[in-house]
Design a binder for these strands. Structure first.
Lengths: 220, 220
DNA sequence: TGTACATCAGTGAACGCGCGTTCACTGATGTAC
DNA sequence: TGTACATCAGTGAACGCGCGTTCACTGATGTAC
């Protein structure tokens, strides 16, 4: 190859990803500010000192995790909020999308919920920045909707923020529903977890519907 | 005195409170799962072993802090949500009340925001329980309002949950506004912090107003 | 294609340090008579 | 009121342990010619 080494870089990237994956796993039951560097390297199976080849500190690994957890969500936001024919249908689609994302990446969602107000400032800042970007993107989509005719910029951003916060609240709600199964350890076979998930979806749907109604009558 | 010792119990209570106060102070810049027992006793000026006379572990101190932070808020909730003449006036009162509470007890508010999804399960559980109580109390007050005529129980609880979540979102918003001052270190004397607080109040007011509008048109 | 040198991801020993917890103790406060 | 004994909040020494970070190293991969 011309200039990109190949094998060596690929192996490095693999180890780096293994460190992030191991950290994310360990963070299911503790917060970043108590996560140890040795804990992470032990879980991966490399020497503690290898950590420094990839991150200056655990906090920097945390910032990388924020990017991984939220970076890929921007395109999804765009398509979800964009104007649709029926409001109820769009809400149902958004709730299902959040439910699916939480089911597919529970550890990422938990990490963001936990560290958004957590004890590590660079990570809090990275999350705040990503959420602000989300709000701007949602605002841009909302502005395209005919329903937003006559809305001030400040009001559009206010509503976008409400949607972003509500997205996180809904994510946490589904996360709690996922934890129901762990509690009962398969002794109840007709699905208390499914029931919890259904109730979470129901609550989230109604809340979004109420916000949507408020939106339609905002300029009355 | 008859059966209550007095001096000894009072001194014990004083030390216990000092431990809680010191912990709350230390928790401004870290999360509970990384707070050390020795750190807390050092801040108070007692021997590490004295800690065990008051709490079995740091997690139990955390649960006591949840009680301290949220226990006294229940009466406030009741009077704030209860039916009022004018909706906008009630919203303004609620936002001011939250702003005042955050200004008076920032460390308590930060602690709740941080540990609600934090790494210490007993503390998460204690917070969840208190918030569920809030939701029930809000629901009871909402039910008394003529606006709620025809609402199902599930819808009332859904709205109560939305209000409780919004209360926490607003609290966090004011908390962020408080941190603006620290960043600039008095080099800007015409109050960037006051401006941030005003914008937080403005956003919170508009969001609550939108929810309130959605509420009024829920049964349309 | 083959060789000689450079790079650098991962190693392993070593360090000083603060941690949580144990234990027997002390001495002021509380209780019984 | 005075005395003798019980209680118990706070002490201080000691322990074994895992932590983050340093350093010189090794050996596979990459590069120059």
């Amino acid at each position: 190859m011309s200039h990109t080494p190949g094998v060596r870089q690929a192996q490095k990237q693999k180890t780096r990803q293994a460190l992030m994956d191991a950290a994310l796993g360990l963070l299911e039951e503790q917060s970043l500010s108590s996560l140890g560097l040795r804990e992470v390297t032990r879980a991966v199976g490399v020497a503690p000192t290898a950590f420094y080849r990839h991150f200056p500190s655990v906090a920097d690994l945390g910032v990388a995790l924020v990017e991984e957890a939220l970076g890929s969500l921007h395109p999804m936001i765009r398509t979800t909020v964009s104007p649709a024919e029926d409001s109820d249908e769009r809400i149902a689609r958004a709730v299902e999308l959040i439910a699916g994302h939480v089911a597919a990446h529970p550890a990422h969602v938990r990490f963001i919920a936990r560290e958004r107000h957590g004890g590590v400032q660079p990570v809090r800042d990275a999350i705040r920045e990503q959420l602000a970007r989300f709000a701007q993107e949602v605002k841009t989509e909302l502005a395209k909707d005919p329903v937003s005719a006559g809305w001030s910029d400040a009001d559009l951003l206010m509503l976008a923020g409400l949607y972003v916060d509500q997205m996180l609240v809904t994510g946490s709600l589904f996360l709690e529903a996922l934890e129901v199964q762990d509690d009962q350890e398969a002794q109840d076979d007709h699905g208390a977890q499914k029931e919890a998930r259904r109730r979470a979806a129901d609550t989230a749907t109604r809340q979004m519907r109420l916000i949507s109604i408020g939106r339609r009558h905002w300029l009355d």
